[in-house]
Design a protein around this nucleic acid. Structure first.
Lengths: 183, 183
DNA sequence: AAACATACGGGATGGCCGTCCCGTTTGTCG
DNA sequence: CGACAAACGGGACGGCCATCCCGTATGTTT
């Protein structure tokens, strides 16, 4: 699409290596890691990073957007095959697990502004799906009617703050709480 | 205690004004507001701020510690007068309301490291009380046994992320969820 | 009212970081 | 193998911010 042909062999290798290292570093240490540090660990100069990804945001988008697109597809799949309640909770849990396994993703999930803008609206798409599933699950009575989408976002972020191996209790609390009727 | 006698009248006034302005700014815009900006709004120079509070952290401590001490006292009061479940949930809700009304406090609550260090351990004291009440409430069966203190912290932060006038639904979800037995 | 200490303002300093640039190196193609 | 374009590295730059410093102004005391 974007003239991949024009990339020299070493450039292609470096680009891939930067992506790989950045993905791991963002996942384990969060988004505040300096670009300089990513370059160092990838064994390239900062110039190389910023030529491939002019902006730190660009790098982030390159890493996250495919993942977000996959999750969106998963959301659509769920919406088609499952009843509203099952679909909503399945997506909720999938998102939480994704965030719990990746600090960077969890950070994105906290700041709605950024998530919405990531990857040519891939983030916004995903948020939209979650919102739709929430509405459907509330209509069918599977989720209490008085919670709003921002409530869901907040609860999701809270769960993502725990690590992968400690998710079950908090997930149980939240999903049980969401199922109960108001008052 | 700390030689208040030695403070000149204008100094005392400026100090109070800075505290007042900083408290409001932190509450409405969060902790990332530059010290420079607080000085500007207080109508003083940055030097004046940093003489009274050598560090931004010092300023934060001055604002938060009395509040934390009050909340700790409230926790003790609850522990003495109420049964474990009631006491735990009352403290939880009180903390959430405090955070929802104050962005700065909510930010502190997210980063346990900082809260623990605030105000000569005033933060740590409060965290300790919450932990004790949690343990008691779990022992008495009022809170499900499989949640951990970090789970509570995460859920608390999530609730604090909502504003004061939108608290009820998310609080209901979380408190209901916490009451249910495991599976 | 004079003299002294205290406090003031805001510019200077230094650290951190993202981004840009350019002299040098290296892959590529004839 | 030679020449040229493409890519590299890392230093330079600029913005942001907390903290420090010092010449000036102002309360305070006798």
């Amino acid at each position: 699409m974007t003239d991949e042909r024009a990339l020299r062999a070493d450039a292609r290798r470096n680009r891939a290596r930067v992506l790989e290292v950045a993905a791991e570093v963002f996942a384990t240490e969060g988004l505040s890691v300096p670009v300089h540090e990513i370059a160092r660990r990838a064994g390239v100069g900062t110039g190389t990073v910023s030529r491939h990804f002019p902006t730190k945001e660009d790098l982030l988008i390159a890493i996250m957007s495919t993942r977000l697109v996959k999750l969106t597809a998963q959301a659509d799949e769920l919406a088609r095959r499952e009843d509203p309640g099952t679909a909503f909770f399945a997506l909720f849990v999938a998102l939480v697990r994704a965030g719990a396994a990746d600090c960077g993703l969890a950070e994105l999930a906290v700041a709605d502004r950024r998530l919405d803008d990531i990857g040519e609206r891939a983030g916004a798409d995903l948020c939209g799906r979650l919102q739709e599933l929430l509405a459907a699950a509330q209509k069918s009575g599977d989720v209490r009617a008085d919670v709003s989408y921002p409530d869901i976002r907040a609860l999701m972020s809270a769960c993502m703050a725990r690590r992968e191996d400690s998710l079950e209790p908090i997930l149980a609390v939240v999903t049980d709480g969401l199922r109960r009727g108001p008052t």
